[in-house]
Design a protein around this nucleic acid. Sequence first.
DNA 1: CATGAATGAGGGTTCATTCAT
DNA 2: TATGAATGAACCCTCATTCAT
Lengths: 219, 219, 219, 219
Amino acid sequence: MATRGRTGDGAPASPPLRADAARNRAQVLAAAREAFRESGTAAPLDEVARRAGVNIATLYRRFPDRQALIRQVVVDAFTLVLDAARAAADASRADAPSALENFMMTLVHQRDMLVLPLIGGPPISDDEVMELQRGINTALEELLDVARADGTIRADVTGLDLITSAAMVCRPLPYLPVEEATALATRHVRVFLDGLRPAVSRELPPGPTFEDFAAHLRQ
Amino acid sequence: MATRGRTGDGAPASPPLRADAARNRAQVLAAAREAFRESGTAAPLDEVARRAGVNIATLYRRFPDRQALIRQVVVDAFTLVLDAARAAADASRADAPSALENFMMTLVHQRDMLVLPLIGGPPISDDEVMELQRGINTALEELLDVARADGTIRADVTGLDLITSAAMVCRPLPYLPVEEATALATRHVRVFLDGLRPAVSRELPPGPTFEDFAAHLRQ
Amino acid sequence: MATRGRTGDGAPASPPLRADAARNRAQVLAAAREAFRESGTAAPLDEVARRAGVNIATLYRRFPDRQALIRQVVVDAFTLVLDAARAAADASRADAPSALENFMMTLVHQRDMLVLPLIGGPPISDDEVMELQRGINTALEELLDVARADGTIRADVTGLDLITSAAMVCRPLPYLPVEEATALATRHVRVFLDGLRPAVSRELPPGPTFEDFAAHLRQ
Amino acid sequence: MATRGRTGDGAPASPPLRADAARNRAQVLAAAREAFRESGTAAPLDEVARRAGVNIATLYRRFPDRQALIRQVVVDAFTLVLDAARAAADASRADAPSALENFMMTLVHQRDMLVLPLIGGPPISDDEVMELQRGINTALEELLDVARADGTIRADVTGLDLITSAAMVCRPLPYLPVEEATALATRHVRVFLDGLRPAVSRELPPGPTFEDFAAHLRQ
DNA sequence: CATGAATGAGGGTTCATTCAT
DNA sequence: TATGAATGAACCCTCATTCAT
């Protein structure tokens, strides 16, 4: 697991919450994910509190401002992704294509947790988030190294391609019911993976690296 | 061209706008696309008016409420896509894979016009929009028919797969500068197209049809 | 007739309007009466123009501001009342109670024209309106003088009592359909008139005079 | 008393307001009465809040929209009238004409509370309001039954006549100062009551019943 | 700790009014 | 003259945020 303490935030040793407070906190985060997915990160915090079944002031006690709430949703999401990416890297030695497919499908199936990077809104340039993203990239590059050595995945694909593709695939059209959306996403994953087999045709044009990408987040 | 009159709306023969009014209208739509892309469809209309350089009341004169503005942005977007899809269908007889690639890349390059379906927000269940979507699907299925007969594109891919993939590919992470975002999107298109070559491997799992999709929009 | 020129305004000899302009003007006034009756004198002028079937700018050409429009509606109303009051004064010599009843019932039946004084809104302190009101009071006092001499109406009732009672009776509850509202108003007139017969009982307590009343309009 | 709890609303047992909140609520209602009386029910709610000395959002916390505020003003008004009507019905056994006069004068003296039915605006077709109106009518019919049996009031007058007359008399021309307006209203009440004595002259023409009236409110 | 209440500020929308055609 | 268009200002209502209980 990549997380410790509360819900993956790196706050230094805050005393564990009382049981009810922890429950409230989790409900607020779940409600925030729902609301953000439906209406974007500008969704009314009243609404988030209502869905969570707590008073708005309780929400504020846990998350001093909107930014803090967004941040935690993002951290939770990237924490999940990091865990999955590391598992995939570990599994890649046995079977890299399967490991990658499992990684992608894990994200597809958990996509209700993966709200933020997929939605837009102001970028979160936060050290912890950055670190998580970097870890994800590292794990995926590790997987790709194995696969390139294997010859099981085309050589010109990067970790950033995988991350961003996964991000997109996790966000298919929002009004489809969940099973159909999953089916559609699964098909896209499959086509994408088929496209990742060692190229018999044209090489990919150059694209940004993870560092380019990270540079823009830092502003 | 799929459009006639103003900007592709099917309003029954309103007299053409005065030159200055038409200019204002176009500026409002451009500003709305910008704002919606950055902040979602809940973006302040004040802001849209300011970017367009008109008074908020002028915006309201043209678009009686937010919904009407969103709708027009969507209609304009789908009109472009429909034009491109029909061109691709026409070109497919000569070379289907190229026609498809051109279609995808046309969308990638025009993606500043293609705001809405990509953003979320409440679905627009509107007859005209529906008709445009259906037309797009029809054109792409026509292209696929040719390509399947050719044996140049795998048989188990549908028009809906193409539409939704295109939608996702046109919306890469928002904070990348335009050239890098284009490069990344281009790479994704290429991988996707490579994945569309006649499958040497597994067949795709079943997915929703366009009609399934349309049914959900109608509610 | 108490009026000359246009519609009873005392504007000094403006050239007569072109036929269509005159029609527009009359339609605007009729629409204003309707709107004012339903929503008060703060009713949107757009709405008035729409009901009149003219452009808002046309309304403004005729009535430079809301005040001017209200004023004309009031003047038209008081002009009607003045005509009726003078007719009643003339007829009072033959039969004062009947003359008074006819006066009251004339107002009841024309009450769609009698919009303003009955609705509230800021008082119109305008010389012409004042003059009309004074004329009405004078005529009614003349009628009362005859009746008091006759012994057909109680001696302690004043012109102001009649005016204000008439004003109230012309404005019964607004959501009744017109026939029922008229029936109700007629009953009130009858009771009131019966109460006006020479008192066998208590004398009325003192009340304001017309001059008191006028003083407050002048502010 | 016809009321219990807050201010006569039949809301099912909301917990009692905190003391300061209750004070604010009452001030808002008083301010609304003032503003509605002066400018109609379309009066700016900002203005209401300002007069009440509270923030506009506080007003909205208590009354979720304009309609709710209007409704409460009406309910409060009719509650007062109902209390007075029941008292009059009780007192009628001893002396019906005095009971009626007291009823009318009670309304005249409390007319700053009796804002809405007297002003117009959209009819409030609300069950609780309906019930109050029906109760008022019932009480007044009870009084009239006694009086008709007594022979102290003419037989052809109805409860609806009394209600609507009272409504009108409570709304004399708005710009008179309060003492003069009261004096004028008192005179009208007296004339009206004199007209209610057993008719020595003509019978009243037929008019709408309370049920007719109620039917129109229900639409 | 959790809630009800209050508030300031901002965004949505309408309206009165003026201008250009 | 009559109209379409534009605008500034008002008003409605919601929301984020803070305070008192």
